[in-house]
Amino acid sequence: MLNGIRSAGRIALIACALLVASCSPAADAPAEPKTEFNIGWSIYAGWMPWPFAQQAGIVKKWADKYGVQIKFVQVNDYVESVNQYTAGKLDGVTVANMDALTIPAAGGKDTSAIIVGDYSNGNDGILLKGADNLSAIKGRQVYLVELSVSHYLLARGLESAGMALTDVKTVNTSDADIVGAFAAPEVTAAVAWNPQLSTMRATPGTKQVFSSADIPGEILDLLVVDTATLKANPNLGKALAGIWYETMALMHRQDAEGKAARAAMAKLAGTTPEEFESQLATTFLYADPKAALEAISSPALLTTMTRVRDFSFSKGLFGQGAKSADAVGMSFPGNKTLGDTQNITLRFDPTFMQMAADGKL
């Protein structure tokens, strides 16, 4: 599964968030300097550059430069990768912005997003049968993975059409079952991500009426690292930034080497080069560190994360102890913050992207 894994199994993630105080080190515990690090990843088009870089020797090149050892560890289930990071078994992980907020950060694990890798630019969509306008969704049962980015996309789509989540009835459906469910004639509305989305969109009489391309920059995919570990070991951040941007430059080449790199990523993802290219077309990769810096420094990110945290709080994803959407603090470049400034546990850290942009890696 290429793009779907990143959002599945929200209930398990919520459970780990609620237990994190007992399954991970204290947020303010100082980390020891070390030289060996494990970074978790799961299969998704925007994250395939990381395992490719390991395979191609790019990871070793940058790790050697900064005197560290970095191992990218594949975790077959996205849920498990975030759980392992939250429990302190991984030093970093690939994760979507909503999940970074509602799982480790909401559970008290101080987390820094040091690479903003991409945003979904059409990988996620709302489908209707027998209609070509989102307004027709009113009153329908909508099949989706509840409490995932699909649920967030539905909320944003309804908002754009002057409706609310109360105007539909959601039916929780796993990512593994949603294609089969949508094939049933009585199922007329669904929200999904690729590759399931493209399969479902081919169903006769089906139209895509809203997608993540309509809310660009809101479903972000990140590389996050434990903040205490990063503070004690800044060379880890430098190496990771070097790895990412060298790999970005290679995979964006329109020559034989670039094509070979993308084909190798497709193989690592278990798909064909053609399918992988198709999914890259709906994934906006931040290949240029200056573009990534602009994205995380923009007021638009604060607006997005306000929407994400308000949605997450409304669905109980901050845990029973959270009294408001301000319970979890976030920080952004330029000393900007959201939420409780005494409880900042999600940080959009521009340090290493800035070093890449300045040619100082």
Score class of each variant (00 low, 15 high):
Tyr245Ser: 08
Ala213Asp: 12
Leu250Val: 12
Ile243Glu: 04
Gln208Cys: 11
Asp255His: 12
Gly242Leu: 04
Asn235His: 12
Leu230Ile: 03
Thr229Cys: 13
Leu220Met: 05
Leu236Trp: 08
Leu230Tyr: 00
Ala228Phe: 04
Pro216Val: 11
Pro204Cys: 02
Tyr245Met: 09
Pro216His: 10
Ser212Met: 07
Pro216Ile: 11
Leu230Val: 09
Leu230Pro: 05
Gly217Pro: 00
Asp214Asn: 12
Ser211Glu: 05
Asp226Ala: 03
Pro204Met: 03
Thr247Asp: 12
Phe210Pro: 01
Arg253Ser: 14
Leu236Phe: 15
Ser211Pro: 00
Asn233Lys: 09
Asp214Met: 09
Met248Ala: 15
Thr203Ala: 14
Pro204Asp: 07
Lys231Phe: 07
Tyr245Lys: 06
Ala241Ile: 02
Trp244Leu: 13
Asp226Trp: 00
Ala228His: 09
Ile243Phe: 09
Lys207Ile: 01
Ile215His: 00
Ala202Ile: 04
Asp214Cys: 01
Trp244Ser: 04
Gly205Asp: 07
Leu250Ile: 10
Lys238Tyr: 11
Pro204His: 05
Tyr245Trp: 04
Thr206Glu: 14
Arg253Trp: 08
Leu222Val: 00
Met248Gln: 15
Val225Phe: 00
Ala249Pro: 07
Leu223Arg: 08
Ser211Met: 03
Thr227Tyr: 08
Asn235Glu: 09
Asn233Trp: 04
Asp226Tyr: 02
Ala241Tyr: 01
Met251Ala: 10
Leu220Thr: 01
Asp226Thr: 03
Ile243Leu: 07
Arg253Val: 04
Ala228Cys: 11
Leu222Cys: 06
Glu218Val: 10
Ile219Tyr: 07
Ile219Ala: 10
Ala202His: 09
Thr203Met: 13
Asn233Ser: 12
Ala249Phe: 11
Leu240Trp: 06
Val225Arg: 00
Met251Cys: 10
Gly205Gln: 07
Leu240Cys: 04
Glu246Tyr: 01
Val225Gln: 05
Ala249Gln: 13
Thr203Glu: 09
Ile219Gly: 03
Asn235Lys: 15
Leu250Ser: 10
Ala202Cys: 07
Ser211Trp: 01
Ile215Arg: 03
Thr206His: 08
Trp244Met: 13
Tyr245Arg: 06
Ala241His: 05
Lys238Cys: 06
Gly242Ser: 03
Trp244His: 12
Gln254Ala: 15
Asp221Gly: 13
Glu246Asn: 13
Ala213Lys: 10
Asp221Cys: 08
Tyr245Pro: 00
Phe210Glu: 05
Leu230Cys: 08
Gln254Ser: 15
Thr247His: 10
Thr206Gln: 14
Thr203Gln: 13
Glu246Ala: 04
Leu250Trp: 12
Thr229Gly: 10
Gln254Thr: 13
Gly205Arg: 12
Ala213Glu: 03
Leu230His: 03
Trp244Asn: 13
Lys207Pro: 02
Asn233Gly: 12
Val225Gly: 01
Glu246Gly: 02
Lys207Ser: 15
Leu220Trp: 02
Arg253Glu: 14
Ile215Asn: 09
Ala249Glu: 14
Asn235Tyr: 08
Leu222Lys: 01
Val224Cys: 05
Asp221Tyr: 10
Thr203Asn: 11
Thr227Glu: 05
Thr227Val: 02
Leu223Thr: 05
Asn233Glu: 14
Asp221Arg: 06
Gln208Thr: 11
Leu220Ile: 01
Lys207Trp: 06
Leu250Met: 13
Thr203Asp: 08
Met248Thr: 10
Met251Leu: 15
Ala241Gln: 02
Ala202Leu: 12
